[in-house]
């Protein structure tokens, strides 16, 4: 293995959490479309351990969701293609597995929660049936036992009057309740890892808080790994242990959550943090990152962020920055911190 050559590329697992549950190494994904090749992911590395929450933060087109789909094995191929990379789940590379082996992992060991619960649930089947299906198919339970289990699950995700509502259909539930049902489905087989793709984006603020709390609590209870994919810097701050910031299909910065907010080491992260208005103070003019996110068919040469970056120099337009290990001024390594910026020192230390 080449882990020694690029130490910063593989984020260190947080102390005391043991070996990583999931490890993504140098993942590339491209889409072959009529208009050419879209380079959605260009070398992503991250890992999650049991009981740990990794937030993957990015704007639309950053590749955060595509990475999740590649991990789940639900990428449409074609047009999608994984030309390079490894995805280790408990030490086995899932990309080298047979379809049958992957299917066994999916659902029972790896589960996913989607943004839009209404379209992820089948509208013509009752929620009880859909929940029970997990037990009937994977565990061979009888219809009656499966139903009992479904009610238990609905209780666990705090759906009031679960017994009475088990035969209701998805449209009879509110958005927040539907997202709870999605969570219950993901939890059904007690997976080791849950990937939540924008789980609260479609929900109202007060409901958002409920759902995030529920997720965090269940994660502790089951000691699961959680990958939280989001564009919302606020949501991340509440629940994540560590953050990976993605831009144009690469991770540009990773850091433990508190440190990222306190001292961003990449100009993109810093720009994002500066550009959101604050609830607790009224600023003058908002800082705005200039320009637009890049077109994935024509990613700028060098650092993908260079046309929008205030610090860009000539080197940024020619050399793709690797993920540097971030250190203190005196050279002491900051554990779990990396920045893919040629000028990370200037960014973090001013």
């Amino acid at each position: 293995m080449t882990t020694n050559e690029t130490p910063a590329n593989v984020p260190e697992p947080a102390a005391g959490k043991g070996a990583p549950l999931l490890e993504v190494r140098d993942l590339h994904v491209e889409f072959h479309t009529r208009d050419g090749v879209v380079n959605a992911i260009n070398g992503v590395n991250y890992s999650v351990s049991a009981g740990e929450t990794l937030a993957v933060l990015g704007e639309s087109g950053s590749g955060k969701s595509v990475t999740a789909q590649a991990i789940m094995g639900i990428l449409d191929m074609p047009p999608g293609k994984i030309p390079k990379g490894e995805i280790f789940f408990r030490g086995d590379d899932m990309l080298r597995m047979s379809d049958e082996e992957r299917r066994k992992i999916r659902g029972s060991k790896l589960a996913m929660i989607f943004q839009d619960a209404l379209s992820a649930l089948n509208p013509v089947l009752s929620v009880g049936y859909q929940l029970g299906e997990m037990f009937r198919v994977h565990q061979g339970l009888s219809r009656k036992d499966a139903k009992a289990k479904s009610i238990e699950l609905m209780d666990r995700v705090r759906i009031p009057a679960a017994k009475a509502r088990v035969n209701d259909y998805p449209h009879q539930f509110s958005g927040g309740m539907r997202q709870r049902i999605m969570i219950a489905m993901a939890l059904a087989l007690e997976p080791d890892l849950i990937i939540a793709d924008e789980p609260t984006t479609a929900l109202d603020v007060t409901v958002q808080a409920q759902i995030m709390d529920l997720l965090a609590e269940l994660q502790r209870e089951y000691n699961m790994g959680l990958i939280l994919i989001t564009h919302d810097l606020g949501v991340v701050a509440d629940v994540a242990d560590k953050i990976a910031v993605m831009y144009a299909g690469r991770i540009v910065e990773n850091a433990p959550v508190h440190e990222l907010y306190k001292r961003p080491a990449h100009p993109y992260t810093r720009g994002l943090l500066d550009s959101i208005p604050r609830l607790d103070q009224k600023g003058q003019e908002l800082y705005a990152i200039k320009g637009l996110p890049p077109n994935l068919q024509h990613i700028p040469a060098g650092c993908a962020f260079n046309p929008r970056c205030t610090m860009a120099q000539d080197v940024c337009r020619t050399d793709v920055p690797v993920l540097h290990q971030v250190t203190e001024r005196d050279g002491a390594e900051l554990p779990g911190r990396g920045s893919a910026c040629h000028f990370w020192k200037e960014t973090i230390h001013g």
Binding site: T206, A209, M212, D238, Y261
Partner: peptide
């Protein structure tokens, strides 16, 4: 008050001092 307290603040430190009111149920 509940609405304001539920807003996730992108600053883990500012968050520490805040009281969070989590409403039950839906609209």
């Amino acid at each position: 008050q509940a609405l304001l307290s539920a807003v996730p603040v992108p600053d883990p430190e500012a968050r520490e001092g805040r009281e969070r009111i989590i409403l039950t149920g839906d609209v």
